[in-house]
Design a protein around this nucleic acid. Structure first.
Lengths: 93, 93
DNA sequence: TTAACATTTAGCCTAAATGTTAAACGTATT
DNA sequence: AATACGTTTAACATTTAGGCTAAATGTTAA
């Protein structure tokens, strides 16, 4: 985990779009796949990248696997960006 | 430009470290290179990625080229992340 | 203008990322 | 248990990224 994994996961447009979709509520892998012009296998791998980065969580319900967003991990990335804007004499690492 | 280029540029640890270094003031390409275990040519390419993303600006002074950070472009990335955390019914796209 | 130095660009190589199809897996239904 | 359905995993092809060395470019100084 960590900043590296977070930013890497966010650097792909499909993965960002998936996160945007999940903002409105959880969706199954199939529902997510429907909205992209790539195969389910590709989306599945994108989902696993997002999951490894802890940007999404999954929970199975019967034969469906539902994905939901987890934004807590964005905190670190936002703090890092904010620190870049800040005065280096004042505060953080 | 745009979010894609910004996040792509930020997804590499060397490029992030370069930005952190530049927080404290501008540095020449050579000074930046000294601090990494890779060749000047590699750093030069990293600098061009950061520059294309408008995360840094350069200005030549004699035979040196000095780089400085430009944080304004981080705004968009931070806003995007913030929007992921927000209520989709309330506000933005 | 030649030499020296700082930096970038080009060409090549390897590794990582992304896409595809086909096979495997997990669950529900019959 | 067999089939069907949703999803993931494996194997492979292609593209992209990052590193290196060598050549090119820009600038200063002799």
């Amino acid at each position: 985990m960590g900043l590296q994994q977070t930013l890497k996961a966010l650097s792909d447009p499909i993965r960002r779009e998936i996160l945007s979709m999940l903002r409105k509520g959880s969706l199954s892998a199939g529902e997510i796949t429907e909205r992209f012009p790539v195969t389910g296998a590709s989306i599945s791998r994108h989902l696993s990248v997002l999951k490894d980065a802890d940007l999404i969580r999954d929970n199975r319900q019967g034969k469906y696997i539902f994905y939901e967003i987890n934004t807590s991990v964005l905190e670190e990335a936002m703090l890092w960006m904010a620190s870049l804007k800040g005065d280096p004499d004042n505060d953080q690492k």
